[in-house]
């Protein structure tokens, strides 16, 4: 059996063993759930047969791909996650209008810049989600992660104040991501 994820309670109560057995049967419950939903969307029907097959795939695929998931993923604050998704969607809309405006009004006036964002996130999942979020919100692309994983280099289409941009990225995206995926890990 693979190394099991560290559980919060160290005391070996019966509940601890029960939880460990559940974890051994289903290493990544969230992944299983997402795969099942993904399957239902793929076949585009919600019959009982599709649900059973989807659930089976959702249960088996995490075992086959366990090497890609060295860390157990857990979402700690669903409320924060929902608010983060809201902020993210709003920023895509707002940023798309900004970028469209910049392209139409005058590429000559753009002031592009590279800015370095010092990272407080530590896990692979957190850093890749932050980099993806930055790239998806219009006007910024994450360009490179430093070898020591302390700095994320970001290219921005137009900025007057690089320090404010860094502060905004940290406050709008990094803080919620830390709360959702990393709080309590340190």
């Amino acid at each position: 059996m693979k190394r099991l994820p560290q559980l919060p309670s160290r005391k070996k109560t019966p509940a601890f063993y029960a939880l460990r057995r559940v974890k051994a049967c289903m290493p990544h419950p969230l992944l299983s759930l997402s795969l099942t939903v993904l399957w239902l969307l793929l076949v585009n029907s919600f019959s009982a047969g599709a649900l059973v097959l989807g659930a089976l795939l959702g249960w088996l695929i995490p075992f086959a791909t366990s090497r890609f998931w060295p860390e157990a993923i857990s979402v700690r604050h669903p409320g924060v996650l929902l608010r983060f998704l809201g902020v993210f969607a709003w920023d895509i809309v707002r940023g798309s209008f900004q970028v469209a405006g910049l392209i139409l009004l005058g590429p000559a006036r753009l002031r592009p810049a590279f800015v370095e964002v010092p990272l407080a996130l530590k896990t692979d999942l957190g850093i890749s989600l932050l980099a993806n979020t930055i790239s998806l919100t219009p006007g910024t692309v994450s360009a490179q992660l430093s070898a020591d994983r302390q700095l994320l280099l970001v290219h921005t289409l137009n900025t007057d104040d690089p320090a404010a941009l860094v502060a905004e990225i940290k406050q709008r995206y990094e803080t919620p991501l830390r709360q959702i995926f990393e709080e309590g890990d340190a």
Binding site: I92, V93, V99, I103, P107, P138, G139, L157
Partner: peptide
């Protein structure tokens, strides 16, 4: 249009990857 109008590689990256999201 950004691909044609913007003036260096890095700014051109923003046009097609972003405005297309929306």
């Amino acid at each position: 249009l950004g691909l044609a109008r913007l003036r260096d590689f890095y700014t051109r990256l923003h046009g097609p990857t972003k405005a297309t999201t929306l």
